[in-house]
Design a protein around this nucleic acid. Structure first.
Lengths: 349, 349
DNA sequence: CTGAAAGCGCTAACAG
DNA sequence: CTGTTAGCGCTTTCAG
């Protein structure tokens, strides 16, 4: 049997309620507190969280719901959350919904009952559904915004603007944006940051394969630079361009979005918009903790319910000045490598 | 107030203990059970896990400890675990230890108290420390083996053997293995599968950067094919080889290990040993559940405490037949691209 | 097969 | 400031 309050009380020569008070910060005389602390320490006492939870109604645990842990973007967010949670000594349930809105809703309902608060990362559900099932007093959105719910998100439109500004500064006049899914909040946010003269291509699937498929779409347009929905799409695009014999950045500049670790490993290394991912997780956890309050402190009112984190451009090798040769499209579709020597030993798609 | 057993008891016209029995599978008359179930359903009754936990001593939760969620390998394992957990209706705490053995030990101790069982994925701790802190009756190791603890791991040595067999079959006679950290269980396992005539290079850091750094080490040896510790290292190696103007697979074959999703996106796509990652997570969770037993069923004795999952070779474009030109090393180190056209626009490392 | 009653370990009133 | 007394919601003896 593990040591309980009774053991400590006996050892310290006080009552169990005094032990409880001494340990949870109630009003106890300094001397008594000292005695109790010592006894607890000596016996290696660890309060039973379950028992405490039964009476306080709080579990000391939080939930994090992500669409897909395999997606490096969400893995980063999760990492930020768990790091901060460890410091705050609270457990984090993580649920992966496999990009399924129904599973997401179910997870919110189910996790909501077993935790003190929920972090919803890039939920795929509609605003209405979210508002219906999520408790505004104990949920924080990450990389998503819904009126009425606390949220932490990056300045997505600003990031898109920076990327386009970079391409424009390099001399590109015909720039395309490879849009993500139409119902994606993140994609709409990026769109909101784009000048009107940017050609919109897509929607494409927000994956490597989506980027591969988009390659031909891009080459069919008279553009010299592309901002992809995200890094995965950009890298797929890079692959397809290489296969089609289009040199990057000589004949086509490509920029991504998110700056997942992959971006630095691509070929060529990818210029991209850096989004604070783990930072967002940390900030969101902190916001949630403030909102629901600690066992001692009461729930704080939140001044700014919508936290915005800055984005920044990371310039690598996939973007470059507009070459004097002009847009590739004059040459029309080509099925094998052109005169450029950059195709390399691509042997499969 | 949420509905409790009392509400259900009243609605069904029975006592609370009957409700409890009906719901947890005690001996109740079929008719009564029916009535109770109906009432519970109608009232939307959900048992309070905390209260149940206080008496049963079980929380219904499990813990998963991984070295780094950002590592796609572990993200995959986590994905498998959470998927199966969702089906089994048990919560999963995930803790990321940031590759820190001390944090790992602490997490085992701390999570051990709040959960019914622990899944330790590729723990970085020594056998002795693990045995000291982990409870053999409620922990399962994933991708690690320690005598006395249940474990689920891939046939790592077999995978290494397959990879070398592939390279040999392609005609390569001088093959190197880029070893991971010396204290890494996984690296030692790979080593165990290698023929004696494979040149061992390293240890290298098991990262992209480690692979980049290893590139020059490899080129300094008269080898024509390399098996890297893992895919990340292989991809870093690919980068460095491209920078040094060495065509892959024409002048050097490169194979990775793990088959993370990245492997298919590399340049060229990477031949690698496929390791069942999410599957391992699923199997491990199931094993753990069997070991600790469900609220009804008692803990089962485990027949085979060391589960082995098969590995398989995925052949992509980074390996090819030995070219007649012989090993590159005759040319010695070269700092810029040679006559090969495969360097491409690499402008940063 | 069913009901009454006794707690699981802890905290929160309430007196003293 | 401290001790006593109730329970939190549930399961589980123990009688009936």
């Amino acid at each position: 049997m593990r040591t309980t309050v009774h053991d400590v009380a006996e050892a310290a020569g006080v009552s169990v309620s005094t032990v409880s008070r001494a340990l949870t910060g109630g009003s106890v005389s300094p001397a008594t507190r000292e005695t109790v602390m010592a006894a607890a320490e000596r016996l290696g006492y660890r309060p039973n969280r379950t028992a405490r939870g039964l009476i306080t109604g709080r579990t000391g645990n939080l939930g994090l719901i992500v669409p897909d842990l395999r997606n490096p973007f969400f893995a980063d967010v999760a990492k930020g959350v768990t790091a901060r949670a460890r410091a705050a000594d609270c457990g984090v349930f993580i649920t992966d919904t496999d990009e399924d809105p129904a599973a997401e809703l179910e997870a919110i309902a189910s996790l909501g009952r077993t935790t003190d608060g929920l972090l919803l990362c890039s939920p795929r559900t509609t605003d209405a559904e979210l508002l219906e099932v999520a408790d505004p007093s104990s949920t924080v959105l990450v990389h998503r915004r819904v009126p009425g719910l606390l949220s932490v998100a990056a300045d997505i439109a600003g990031g898109a603007r920076q990327a386009i500004g970079h391409l424009t500064a390099l001399g590109h006049r015909r720039v395309a944006f490879l849009a993500g899914p139409d119902d994606s909040w993140a994609s709409r946010q990026r769109l909101a940051g784009l000048p009107a003269d940017v050609l919109r291509i897509g929607a494409v699937a927000p994956t490597f394969d989506g980027g591969v498929a988009a390659g031909d779409l891009v080459l069919a347009e008279p553009v010299t630079a592309v901002l992809a929905y995200n890094d995965l799409v950009a890298i797929g695009l890079l692959h397809r361009l290489a296969t089609r014999g289009v040199a990057v950045p000589e004949r086509m500049s490509v920029a991504g979005y998110d700056d997942i670790s992959l971006a630095a490993m691509s070929h060529p290394p990818l210029t991209t918009v850096a989004v604070p991912k783990d930072r967002a997780g940390e900030v969101a956890l902190e916001l949630l903790l403030r909102r629901i309050g600690a066992p001692g402190r009461p729930p704080a009112e939140i001044r700014d319910p919508e936290v915005t984190l800055p984005t920044g451009l990371v310039v690598r090798a996939s973007t470059g000045p507009l070459s004097s040769a002009g847009p590739h499209s004059a040459a029309g579709p080509q099925s094998s490598a052109g005169p450029q020597s950059s195709a390399g030993p691509h042997s499969s798609s």
